[in-house]
Design a protein around this nucleic acid. Structure first.
Lengths: 122, 122
DNA sequence: CATTTGCACAACCAATAGGTTGTGGAAGTG
DNA sequence: CACTTCCACAACCTATTGGTTGTGCAAATG
């Protein structure tokens, strides 16, 4: 195999990689305040409308936004389901580590306490 | 400006893009169970040790792991601080939207209730 | 000391990402 | 109808990503 790439991108990868771009995060922040059209979203950025459309397509593929059609406009709405999925994944593993880490700290504290019986300054 | 790329990658982008790869997420999952050496981490994957080393460098740059030195081994440990940062960012904006969405659902439910007075089947 | 083990650095490669310009269609407005 | 507004598609460009092979050093082991 020479240089083959990922073919079947899983949803979580799409979500995280969608959130990995500052422009797209800004768009999500904006959409958290309410729906907006492409031009409204593009306005604050120093880039073309086409670039923003590309970003929106990435967010849509990650199912972080959904798009409706109102007349000639294409308003975007935030879809939090996959945001939840992302938080879920992180929390699941962060918590396991945190628990272990607590026990480790506990263990070290116990050791420290044991040493304190013999010498005041370690 | 013709095709200039991101120069000053912010930390959050590094974190999300580090988590955007299934191999790296698997590594994080593994490290949530406790520290491991490079070879231990590489073992489950159908790729070279060098590829894993690259992935570890990405995780290290995102400050999701830290590496110590024990003899000739380089054990990796999970660092949850930036995982927390990622969750924090998502939660902040997800919550705002969720609140708005609740009020919208409420509003729609109220409308629906109003209609129910006139016709049973909407 | 010779060898193995653990890991990283470098050069290379194909695919992807993130931007551009150019263009055109579909829906509202004079 | 002519025109403008809103948006997407296509072609193109460059940098980055995710993998490879080849190599070599540093520390443990015989």
């Amino acid at each position: 195999m020479v240089g083959r790439m990922a073919v079947v991108e899983d949803e979580l990868s799409l979500v995280f990689s969608a959130l990995a771009d500052p422009t797209r995060r800004a768009i999500v922040e904006r959409l958290a305040l309410g729906e907006a059209t492409v031009n409204q979203l593009a306005e604050p950025f120093a880039m073309t409308q086409q670039a923003i459309s590309k970003h929106l397509k990435v967010l849509e593929r990650a199912r972080l936004i959904t798009r409706t059609r109102t007349a000639q406009a294409r308003p975007c709405v935030l879809d939090t389901e996959n945001l939840d999925a992302a938080v879920g994944w992180i929390e699941r593993h962060r918590q396991i580590w945190a628990d272990r880490h607590d026990r480790l700290s506990e263990h070290l504290a116990a050791l420290q306490a044991g040493r304190a019986k013999n010498e005041d300054k370690p």
